[in-house]
């Protein structure tokens, strides 16, 4: 008989969409904040914080990429 693992399919769909949105949010958020902090007219102590926050978001996006590499390593499977 036909066996379709609907549960696995649902999990894959939800995780894929969620992780994609999370990564894109981190990446574009990071880009936006770094750009904001680096714009000369707004240079101040505050803009340094904004810039740092931007780099933090980009770092988190980078962690997601590292997690992806970890998933591809045979030890994790």
């Amino acid at each position: 008989m036909m066996k379709i693992d609907w549960a696995a399919l649902g999990v894959v769909a939800i995780v894929s969409i969620f992780v994609t949105l999370a990564f894109t949010a981190l990446l574009s958020g990071g880009i936006r904040l770094v750009a904001q902090g680096a714009t000369p007219v707004e240079q101040s102590a505050g803009s340094q914080v904004v810039k740092l926050a931007g780099y933090a978001l980009l770092g988190l996006a980078g962690l997601l990429v590292l997690f992806g590499i970890y998933l591809l390593m045979p030890i994790s499977g």
Binding site: D5, A8, V11, V12, S16, T20, G68, G77
Partner: peptide
């Protein structure tokens, strides 16, 4: 966005059994 979607979907499908 497309790259993120491709990567996430492939890794999810390889690790979650579909």
């Amino acid at each position: 966005a497309a790259g993120a979607a491709t990567t996430a979907t492939i890794l999810a499908s390889a690790n979650l059994g579909f």
